[in-house]
Design a protein around this nucleic acid. Structure first.
Lengths: 336, 336
DNA sequence: TTGTAAGCGTTATCAT
DNA sequence: ATGATAACGCTTACAA
C-alpha cells in the first residue's frame, strides 16, 4: 500500500487536463490572465491529485528559502527560550520557518552553525553572540554572501551592524535607587568576568548610579565571579569576609544570586534582613523562593527577539539598502 | 562595493578551466574516475572563485533537504529545551539541521507547523504531542507524503508508530517506596486533568505502587489540578481540608509542587516536616529551595530526544522499511 | 578519464 | 487566454 508516492507535479495536472504546464502554474497562482473556468478546473484537479507544490524547486528557482536561522548560546536559559518564542511568532507571521542553532558559547560551534545556515541558504540570520566570541570576521563573510544578520542581546561593538539590545544602566540605576531609598549605603556588586562586555557595562552603570545617589564608591565592594557555582560562592565569600559587610548586593544575574543566596544562608546570614539582593534577568522562579530578592532587572528577551526579527524581515522585504538599526531597550527593575 | 554577489557556479569553474561542468562536479565530489591533476585544478579554481555549492539546487535534485523538523509544546519547559539540545547534537553528527516549531499545546498550531515542515520538505519529523491533541490523522498524512515521524515523550497510543517515552510507573514505585520506608502511610497524589493520558498512567502507577507496599488506597487522597496556579492551589486546599491530612504527596510535576508547596507554606504547614513531596521532572532549581522535596522523578528528556533522533536517522539512512520502534525509558526517583 | 545531454519542478519571457 | 521554451545549478547515465 505504501506506494513510493512521488507527489503529483504541475506537469501531471497539465497532462491530465491536456493543457500546458504554464497555464497550470498560472492558474494555481491565480494569475489574472487565466480564465475562471480553467482556473477552477486546474484547482479541482490539483486537489484530486493531491498536488503539493515542490518548495525545494521553488526555493531553487526563486533563490529564497523562506527560512531564517537563529543562533543563540543555549535554550536552557529562559532568556533565550523566551526570545526564540517571540522570534518564531514573528517568523510565522511572515510565513517563514526557523532553523535553530545553539552555540553553547563556543566560538567554533558558532562558526559551524553559520556555515551550515549558509549552506542551507537561509534568507537571514538572527544571532545572540556567545560570551567569548571575539572574531567578528563572520560578519564580513555573511555580507559577502548577501545574508543579512541582525544581532540581539549580546551584540558586537560595531556601528555598521543591525542590533537590538538592552541598556543595563537604567535597571542598575533603579536598583541602586531602590537600595538607597531603603537606607542601604554599603552596596556591593557581584560582577561577571572582566572579559565580558556585559561586565564592563555593569561596573560602569554601578559606579555612575552610586555617584548619582551620593554613595561613595568602595572598590572592595566590587567582586567578580566566573559564573560557575564555585566562582559565585567565592565571590560571596569575599564579601562576607569583609569587616564591613555589604547590606545590599547587585549581582550579575539571577543564577548568580541563587547560588549566592544559598551560600549566604549556609554562612548564617539571614536573607532579606542581613542582606538584600537584586540581579538581572527577572526569572519567574523567584515567586517560589522563600526570601526572594527585593527585585530583579527585566531585560525583555521577548521584545528583543521580536524586534530583531522584525528588523530582519524589514531588510528582507525592502528593496533598498537600509541603514543599520541600533535599538536599545532600557532594562527595568521589577520589584517582588 | 557590495556587488550583488551572484556566487560562482560549477559552470563558471568549467568555463574558466575549459572543461565540462560534469567534470567539475565530479572533481568537487572526489569522484574516483577523475584525474588527480584535474581534481586539484578544479578545487583550486573553486576556492579562487569562492565557489559554494548551491544547496537549494542539490536539495531539489536529490529530493532531500538534510533538515529535520522538531515539534514540541514549548521550550520554556526545561524538559523540552534539554530534549532539543540532545536532538540538535545527534542531528549535527548526521550533518542535518533542525527546524523548530513550538505548538504551545495547541492542536491547530501543530497542524500548521506540520504543514509548514511538509512544505519545506523536511526529511523527517520529531514530535512531542501537545497535551490535548486528539486528532491523529496527520500521521497518515505524513505517511502518504513519505515523511517519517518519530514521537517522544508525549506519544500517540498506536503501535504502528515509532516512539520513545518514559515509563512513569518505575519512578512512582520508587517514590512510594521512599515515602513508605520513611514511615508515611497517608500518601496523596495531586494529578493532572483526567483528560491527559499522563494522568491516567500516574493514577494507575500510584495505585499499583501503593498496593505493592501494602498501603490502603484511599480515593480522597487522589485530587486533580488543571495545572494552572489556581488549580494547583485548589488541589492542595482539598488535601489540607481533610480531617486526616496526608503526610506525603506525589504530584504531577515540579511546577505543581512549587505552587503547592508555596500554598502549603501560606497555610501554615511546615514543609519537610508536616508534609513531604515528590514530583516528576527533576528540575535543577530544587537545590535552591529551602525545604525541597525529598526527591524528584527524572524522565531523561535528553535520552528521549537523543534516542528519538537516532531512530529517525536510522529510518532515514536505512534502505528497507524498518519495524516501528517502541522504546521505553524507566523513570527514576532522584533523592535530594 | 572526460564530455554530452537530459532532467529535477517551477516560473517567466515571449509568442500566438 | 494559453502555449512553447528556456532557465535556475547540479548530478548522472550514457557516450566517447
Amino acid at each position: 500500500m505504501t506506494k513510493p508516492n512521488k507527489p503529483a507535479t504541475i506537469k501531471e495536472i497539465a497532462r491530465k487536463l491536456k493543457i500546458s504546464p504554464s497555464t497550470v502554474s498560472r492558474a494555481l497562482n491565480d494569475h489574472p490572465s487565466i480564465g475562471l473556468v480553467t482556473t477552477m478546473r486546474v484547482k479541482k484537479m490539483a486537489v484530486e491529485l493531491n498536488y503539493e507544490p515542490n518548495q525545494t524547486a521553488i526555493f531553487f528557482k526563486q533563490r529564497k528559502t523562506f527560512t531564517i536561522g537563529v543562533i543563540l548560546p543555549t535554550l536552557s536559559e529562559p532568556f533565550f527560550s523566551l526570545a526564540i518564542s517571540a522570534i518564531e511568532t514573528v517568523a510565522e507571521e511572515h510565513k517563514y520557518t526557523v532553523l535553530l542553532g545553539q552555540s553553547l558559547d563556543n566560538e567554533a560551534r558558532e562558526l559551524q552553525i553559520i556555515n551550515s545556515f549558509k549552506k542551507h541558504r537561509v534568507d537571514g540570520i538572527l544571532m545572540s553572540m556567545g560570551k567569548n566570541t571575539t572574531d567578528l570576521s563572520f560578519i564580513e563573510m555573511l555580507r559577502a554572501s548577501d545574508i543579512p544578520i541582525v544581532f540581539f542581546d549580546c551584540v558586537p561593538e560595531l556601528d555598521n551592524v543591525d542590533k537590538v539590545y538592552s541598556d543595563l544602566s537604567s535597571g542598575m540605576e533603579e536598583a541602586i535607587e531602590a537600595f538607597v531609598s531603603r537606607g542601604h549605603r554599603r552596596i556591593a556588586l557581584i560582577n561577571g568576568p572582566d572579559t565580558l562586555l556585559a561586565s564592563g557595562e555593569r561596573t560602569e552603570a554601578f559606579k555612575s548610579a552610586l555617584k548619582k545617589f551620593d554613595v561613595v564608591i568602595d572598590e572592595k565592594y566590587i567582586v567578580h565571579t566566573d559564573l560557575t557555582e564555585k566562582g559565585n560562592e567565592d565571590a560571596m565569600e569575599q564579601l562576607c569576609s569583609l569587616s564591613e559587610r555589604p547590606s545590599a548586593v547587585v549581582s550579575f544575574n539571577d543564577f548568580v544570586t541563587l547560588d549566592v543566596m544559598k551560600y549566604a544562608r549556609h554562612r548564617g546570614i539571614v536573607l532579606s534582613q542581613d542582606m538584600h539582593f537584586i540581579s538581572y534577568a527577572n526569572y519567574p522562579l523567584w515567586k517560589y523562593i522563600e526570601n526572594p530578592p527585593i527585585g530583579s532587572i527585566e531585560q525583555y528577551p521577548d521584545k528583543q527577539g521580536g524586534k530583531a526579527a522584525e528588523i530582519l524581515f524589514d531588510i528582507l522585504t525592502s528593496k533598498e539598502e537600509l541603514e543599520p538599526e541600533d535599538i536599545v531597550f532600557p532594562s527595568k527593575l521589577v520589584l517582588k
